[in-house]
Computed example of a mutant assay.
Amino acid sequence: MTQDVELIDLAVTFPALRFDLKYATADNIAGYAIYQEAKALLHPAAADALAKSIEIARLAGFSLLVFDAYRPQQAQWHLWDACPDKDYVVPPAQGSNHSRGVAIDLTLLDAQGQPLDMGTAFDAMEAESHPYHPNVPAEAQRNRLLLNAIMFGGGFVAMPTEWWHFELPDAKNYPLLDERFGCFAR
Rank of each mutant, 00 (worst) to 15 (best):
T2W: 02
Q3G: 11
E6I: 03
L10I: 03
L10R: 04
F14K: 04
A16T: 12
F19D: 12
D20F: 10
K22R: 15
A24K: 01
T25A: 08
A26F: 07
I29V: 13
Y32C: 10
A33N: 07
I34K: 10
I34F: 12
Y35G: 05
Y35V: 01
A38Y: 01
K39S: 04
L42I: 04
P44F: 12
A46H: 10
A51D: 03
S53C: 03
I54S: 04
I54G: 02
I56F: 04
I56A: 10
A57R: 04
A57Y: 02
L59P: 02
L59F: 12
G61A: 01
S63K: 05
S63G: 15
L64T: 11
L65I: 04
R71H: 12
P72A: 07
Q74S: 14
A75M: 07
W77Y: 11
H78M: 08
L79V: 09
D85P: 11
K86D: 15
D87K: 14
A93N: 11
G95H: 05
S96K: 01
N97C: 05
G101T: 04
V102D: 12
V102P: 09
A103Y: 03
A103K: 14
I104H: 00
T107A: 08
T107F: 00
L109I: 07
D110W: 06
D110M: 11
Q112E: 14
P115I: 02
L116A: 05
D117P: 01
A121G: 10
F122W: 13
M125C: 15
M125A: 13
E126T: 13
E126W: 07
E128W: 09
P131T: 01
V136D: 07
V136K: 02
Q141K: 10
Q141W: 05
N143W: 11
L145H: 09
A149I: 01
F152H: 14
V157N: 06
M159A: 02
T161H: 15
E162Y: 03
W163C: 01
L168E: 01
P169M: 04
D170Q: 07
D170Y: 01
D170R: 00
K172S: 15
Y174Q: 08
Y174L: 03
P175C: 05
P175M: 08
D178A: 13
E179T: 11
E179V: 08
R180S: 05
